[in-house]
C-alpha cells in the first residue's frame, strides 16, 4: 500500500539517508529502529506524504507522491492513521473532539457516536474525554493520539515512538492494540528505540525489524 524505492532525503544539507526501499503491504508489521537523529521520523513523514523524497519513488496507495495534488495527499491521509512523535492536538478542544477530528474534517463526525467512548475506554481515557490536551500527562496524550489514529479505521497505521512516554504496562496494551489492528489486515509501521517493546512483540506477531543507521536501512533482528 505504501512503497518506497531507492528513496533519498535531504533537508537541504547533506543526504540524511539514501537507497531506502520499503514496502508496507496489507497485514505487514514493521518496526523501525535506529539511533536518535538517524532519520526515523523523516522516513515516516515520507511514508505519509508529509515530505517528498529528494530522490527515488514513493507511492502511496499506488499514487506517485510526486504527482499527487495537495487534495489527494489529504485524502490519502484519511486512510493512514498517524501517531505523531509529539502527538499534536488542538489544545483548545476537549480530548473527545480531538479524537474524532479525522472524522470531523472528513465530514463524517456523526459516525463517531458509538465508537468514541469505547475507543477512549480501550486506551484507558474514558474519564478524561472532556479534558483539554494540555491537562493530560504525556502518556495519556500518546494513548489519545493512538485513539485518534485508528478512529477512521485506516488501512495503514504509522506510529512514531508511541511508547516514548508511557509505562511498561500501558505500552504492552498499546502493542496489543497495534497487533490486533494488524490482524485485521492493516499495515503497521512503528518507529521506536524501545527494544523491549520489539522483543515483546516478537511473541505476538510476525514483525520485520528494520534499522536505520549510517544513512542506510537494513534488516535487523538477530541481534535483538
Amino acid at each position: 500500500m505504501i512503497e518506497l524505492r531507492n528513496v533519498a532525503y535531504s533537508y537541504g544539507g547533506g543526504e540524511l539517508f539514501s537507497e531506502i526501499s520499503l514496502s508496507l503491504g496489507p497485514g505487514t508489521f514493521h518496526f523501525l529502529t535506529g539511533p536518535s537523529g538517524s532519520g526515523k521520523t523523516t522516513l515516516l513523514k515520507l511514508c505519509y506524504g508529509d515530505l517528498r523524497a529528494t530522490a527515488g519513488d514513493v507511492a502511496i496507495f499506488g499514487e506517485d507522491t510526486r504527482r499527487m495534488s495537495r487534495d489527494s495527499v489529504a485524502l490519502a491521509r484519511r486512510r493512514i492513521g498517524v501517531v505523531h512523535q509529539d502527538c499534536q492536538f488542538l489544545d483548545h478542544l476537549p480530548l473527545s473532539e480531538n479524537v474524532v477530528l479525522p472524522l470531523t474534517v472528513a465530514g463524517r463526525a456523526a459516525e463517531a457516536e458509538g465508537n468514541l467512548m469505547d475507543l477512549l475506554r480501550w486506551v484507558g481515557l474514558g474519564a478524561q474525554a472532556e479534558q483539554l490536551p494540555p491537562e493530560l500527562s504525556g502518556g495519556e496524550r500518546q494513548r489519545a493520539a493512538l485513539a485518534r489514529a485508528v478512529i477512521m479505521d485506516p488501512d495503514v497505521i504509522i506510529a512514531d515512538e508511541p511508547t516514548g512516554n508511557i509505562d511498561w504496562e500501558m505500552s504492552q496494551r498499546l502493542l496489543t492494540l497495534l497487533v490486533e489492528l494488524n490482524r485485521m489486515g492493516k499495515a503497521v509501521l512503528v518507529a521506536t528505540h524501545d527494544l523491549n517493546l520489539i522483543r515483546a512483540a516478537k511473541s505476538q506477531v510476525q514483525a520485520r525489524i528494520l534499522r536505520l543507521s549510517n544513512r542506510r536501512l537494513q534488516a535487523a533482528g538477530a541481534d535483538l
Partner: peptide, 12 residues
Amino acid sequence: VIRVLRLVGARD
C-alpha cells in the same frame, strides 16, 4: 492548528 488539521487529513 493547521499542522494538526493536515495530519488528520483536512483538505486546504
